[in-house]
C-alpha cells in the first residue's frame, strides 16, 4: 500500500466530468481531496491517492489519457 500526493489540473472541457468519482470506481484506490479550486476555465485539485503501486500508476495513466495534467504535489522537482 502506498500513498501519493498529486495536483490535478483539468482543462475546461473536463470540469463537468466526475473524474474523482470514476477513479474510485474503476481502480482500487482511495481518494482524498485536500484542496480544490474550480473556475469556468480550469480545475485544480490537490488529491491524496492510496492503493497498490500498480493501481496508482494505472489511475494516473487513465487521468492523463483523459487530458488531466497530473503533477506531484511539489509541482516541479526538476529545476534549471
Amino acid at each position: 500500500m502506498e500513498t501519493t500526493r498529486l495536483w490535478l489540473m483539468y482543462p475546461a472541457k473536463l470540469i463537468t466530468r466526475p473524474i474523482i468519482h470514476d477513479l474510485g470506481h474503476k481502480f482500487a484506490v482511495t481518494t482524498n481531496v485536500r484542496q480544490a479550486s474550480v473556475t469556468d476555465e480550469i480545475g485544480l485539485v490537490c488529491l491524496e491517492l492510496s492503493g497498490e503501486r500498480g493501481e496508482i500508476k494505472r489511475s494516473i495513466a487513465w487521468m492523463e489519457d483523459l487530458g488531466v495534467k497530473v503533477e506531484p504535489v511539489e509541482i516541479n522537482t526538476i529545476e534549471g
Binding site: 501519493t4 494516473i60 497530473v70 503533477e71 506531484p72 504535489v73 511539489e74 516541479n76 522537482t77 526538476i78 529545476e79
Partner: peptide
Amino acid sequence: NRLCSEIAGKYGWGFVNV
C-alpha cells in the same frame, strides 16, 4: 518529474529542491 518526487519520498536523502 513524478519519478523524482517518488525517489525523494522513498530514499532518505536530502533532496535540495524537494
